[in-house]
């Protein structure tokens, strides 16, 4: 079912008799990509589940009016990144701890995962990501894990490709440094 094109899913969603099935197929198509993006941003599974849910509720509410002047894929990613950033912003406002303490909290949550292995490079990488500022973390995740072209990322984050490349390079250097030191 996930082999449907975005165009086919949109048409099916606009037909009341196939709306639910189209939405289910759309979720199946994007859920994993969106979940892992959100999960690496917010770390906790419960928080990630909430953000993913809010993202797809907004997709459901807005899909009928989706104007198709951007790709569906970009539109869904934009909703997910906005939801992520506002969630983190709210959390920051409510938190009584400093930013470095919050970084530490996220690192502890990564370490609390039952599969965590401090000796493995991929887990060191996951810890290193949590040291990055939010925007830089987002750019790194989109490029490194989601393999998103700069052109698409530029449309998604409304930032120039040059600025995104610089941000990614900067993040990669920081991560390399973190791994060398740990």
């Amino acid at each position: 079912m996930t082999s449907y094109t975005d165009q086919q899913l949109l048409q099916a969603f606009r037909d009341p008799s196939t709306k639910d099935a189209a939405f289910t197929d759309l979720v199946k198509k994007y859920q994993e990509k969106i979940y892992w993006l959100v999960k690496r941003m917010v770390v906790s599974h419960e928080d990630a589940n909430d953000v993913v849910q809010n993202t797809f509720i907004r997709v459901w509410n807005g899909l009928e009016k989706f104007r198709e002047d951007s790709q569906l894929y970009t539109w869904i990613y934009r909703i997910a990144t906005n939801e992520c950033l506002s969630f983190l912003e709210q959390k920051k406002r409510k938190a009584l701890t400093s930013l470095s303490e919050q970084e530490q909290e996220r690192a502890e949550q990564v370490k609390a995962d039952s599969h965590f292995d401090a000796q493995k490079l991929e887990w060191k990488l996951e810890l290193a990501i949590q040291q990055l500022p939010e925007r830089q973390r987002l750019v790194f995740i989109l490029r490194y894990y989601q393999e998103m072209p700069y052109e698409q990322m530029s449309k998604l984050l409304e930032t120039s490709e040059g600025a995104l490349k610089a941000s990614y390079h900067h993040a990669a250097k920081k991560i390399e440094q973190y791994i060398l030191n740990h």
Binding site: T24, V27, S114, H115, L121, L125, E126
Partner: peptide, 29 residues
Amino acid sequence: GLPLQQQATFQLPNGYFEQLPTQLLVAAK
């Protein structure tokens, strides 16, 4: 020095992605 395209495997509740589409449909409605 950075590992190439390596992803850690996080713990996930059993059948999470199988149940998510139905759960999200109910939540949206």
